[in-house]
């Protein structure tokens, strides 16, 4: 029977993949969320319509289905080869959570009180300046707590990548478990603890942002 440190070492072989997928997905989904969120509030009807379509498709289906779909359809159907399944995973996770997060971007922008826009017009700011200096800084503060929550969701979602063959924590855990059946409890508890350790900074960030969001936001 192996000790906890031994099993930990085996599992930690998957840390790299988990971290790569996590960091890339966090970045890409943030970019997608900002672009899609701003598109949703733009004046261009075509752009808003297209973004809405994207958001509803990805929110309306299930991430695990999307992940499988991408991993089979990209190479098979569209003959797109991203070089590594890591990119397939990142793309699926980011498109999915980008869609969810674009809604908080949109919601935050819309929730900045109209008085702020009116005041900026009165000061003769351009539409772009208005967004850049007045609306977005306030909106960001409001959306940060929810953003933090979504980062935790993304972390949890990275556990799905083993299903398309990527070698993360869970992949090594499953392999080890299949040959050491009685040690399954240790294996999965350790994996959960690793995920929780990765989640802690994100939980801390979210709580801090909840406090920040309560300050410095105009009400009414």
């Amino acid at each position: 029977m192996s000790s906890i440190p031994d099993i930990s070492l085996i599992l930690l072989k998957g840390l790299k993949v988990t971290l790569i997928v996590l960091v890339l997905s966090m970045m890409l989904s943030t970019i997608i969320a900002l672009v899609a969120g701003l598109s949703r509030v733009s004046n261009n009807r075509l752009l808003t319509g297209f973004t809405k379509f994207y958001v509803e498709i990805f929110r309306g289906t299930s991430l695990i289905v999307q992940l499988f779909w991408f991993s089979y359809a990209l190479p098979g159907l569209f003959n797109i080869h991203l070089g590594s399944d890591i990119w397939v995973a990142v793309l699926a996770i980011s498109l999915n959570y980008g869609a969810y997060m674009s809604e908080i971007v949109r919601g935050a922008i819309l929730s900045v009180p109209p008085g702020q826009t009116e005041a900026s017009i009165a000061l003769n700011l351009s539409r772009f300046q208005r967004m850049r200096h007045i609306i977005i800084p306030q909106a960001i503060r409001m959306m940060l707590p929810e953003y933090g929550n979504y980062l935790i969701q993304i972390l949890k979602a990275t556990s799905l990548v083993s299903l398309i063959g990527l070698t993360d924590f869970l992949y090594y855990g499953n392999i080890y478990r299949s040959t050491h059946l009685t040690e399954a409890p240790t294996v999965y508890i350790l994996i959960l603890i690793f995920y929780f350790l990765l989640a802690l900074p994100l939980i801390g960030f979210t709580r801090k942002m909840e406090k920040v969001a309560k300050k410095g936001v105009v009400h009414g």
Binding site: L170, Y195, A199
Partner: peptide, 9 residues
């Protein structure tokens, strides 16, 4: 804050 997939397993 940990993955439901791992909890299922």
């Amino acid at each position: 804050s940990t993955p439901p997939l791992v909890q299922l397993f």
